Simulated assay, not measured.
Amino acid sequence: MERPDLSDLDAFVAVAHARGFRGAATARKVSASALSEAVRRLEARLDVRLLNRTTRSVTPTDAGARLLERLSPALDGVAEALDVVNAYRDTPTGTLRLNVPGIIARVVLPPIAADFLKTHPGVTLEVAVEDSFVDVLAARFDAGVRYEERLEQDMIALPIGPRVQRFAAGAAPAYLASRGVPRHPRDLLEHACIRHRFPSGSMPVWEFEQDGEIVRVDPKGPLVSTSVDMEVGAALAGLGVLATFEELLAPHFKSGALVPVMEDWWQPFSGPYLYYAGRRHVPGPLRAFIDFVKARREN
């Protein structure tokens, strides 16, 4: 049997992990047809079907699952071996793949990423924005950014961005003029509230805190969305009270387009962490980013 091409094996792993050709193509910046052809070529050389394809999903066959189990660490080893060369360069080169939630992509990562890429012009940064929980290693990311309660136990966590954040609440002046100003979290049960739903389908209750007292409310309102842009726009239009990250509302508080409400009840929480596997080789671009984040915090 002719030995398969390494690029075809890599294409199979990418598609199997992504559970689809389009997702893998987006991550690898190649066409879905090129990946499809590579997998077909690999299956022909091995004379066995590796992937079950339907219009809705792509899943490994039994043979494909066994190959994936053995092949993934082998390809990781090849990448690690090649990355050793980075130690002999003045600056690392390669791609750094991060998975971050939307709030991080909006207000935390942009200034850090801009300074990092200016310092390390040989690195390409790829950022995937997902608010749902993601196993960064299984999804082939180098690292992720999440909040403390979302960290996996076997990962190393490095503080990144602000160490304390708050959930804030606000509404448009016209709304407050017509409906009154809530003074206590339970007052929100009598107000129109704009809610956020995560991609998982969950819609957490609003939590407020004052002098150790925690109050949770589940208010109703005219809009539920997975888009913070939609939610902020609705609040600006006077549709109701919005509770979300303070950083998203602060510019509108400053301009007067929104008015803070119940500020003495805004709950603080720990800031985000960069997390990565501690039991494997750290690629050059990731090592450079870790060192950069550490140095930035010390300055």
Rank of each mutant, 00 (worst) to 15 (best):
R140K: 06
V39L: 02
R45C: 09
R296L: 07
D83N: 09
D135H: 07
D90K: 14
L35I: 00
P222D: 13
A250C: 04
V58S: 04
L258C: 08
R56E: 13
D83E: 10
V30H: 00
P182Y: 02
F245P: 00
P185N: 01
P272V: 09
Y276A: 14
A277M: 11
E126R: 10
N86Y: 11
A38P: 02
D142K: 02
R97V: 06
V224R: 10
F116Q: 09
H120V: 11
S57R: 09
R186T: 14
T93R: 13
R279K: 15
D10H: 06
D291K: 13
P268L: 04
R56A: 12
L75C: 07
A172H: 15
E209M: 14
D83P: 14
N299R: 14
E80Q: 10
A44Y: 02
R106N: 04
P173N: 08
A113G: 10
L239N: 09
A143Y: 04
L117I: 11
F116V: 08
V30I: 06
D154E: 15
K29G: 01
R66C: 03
P159L: 13
V215K: 13
R53G: 04
D187Y: 06
Y273M: 08
A128V: 12
A74T: 06
A234C: 10
R97G: 02
S31Y: 00
A168D: 02
T226R: 15
A143L: 05
V30C: 06
H196D: 00
A234N: 11
D218I: 08
V15E: 00
V58L: 05
L188Y: 09
I214A: 13
V261M: 03
E2G: 02
N99M: 13
R45S: 14
G221F: 09
G201W: 11
H252E: 12
A113F: 06
G221C: 05
N52F: 04
V100C: 04
A114T: 12
I290W: 04
A18K: 02
A237F: 00
F133T: 12
L71P: 11
R56W: 08
A169V: 00
G122F: 07
P204H: 01
F245N: 06
L258W: 04
E149V: 12
P219C: 12
P219V: 12
R22I: 03
A65T: 03
P162L: 08
V85T: 11
L35W: 00
D115I: 00
P173V: 10
T95D: 09
E148H: 13
R216A: 14
G102T: 11
R279G: 15
P162H: 05
L242N: 04
E231D: 14
L258V: 10
E80N: 11
G170S: 02
L9D: 02
L274V: 13
T61V: 02
Y175Q: 03
P4W: 10
H191W: 04
D135C: 05
K118S: 14
R49V: 04
S72E: 14
L82R: 14
P251C: 05
F245A: 09
A250V: 12
A171E: 08
V241I: 15
A38T: 03
S31L: 00
V215P: 11
D8N: 07
H17D: 07
R195T: 06
V224Q: 08
T61K: 03
I112E: 03
E37N: 14
V232G: 06
A114M: 05
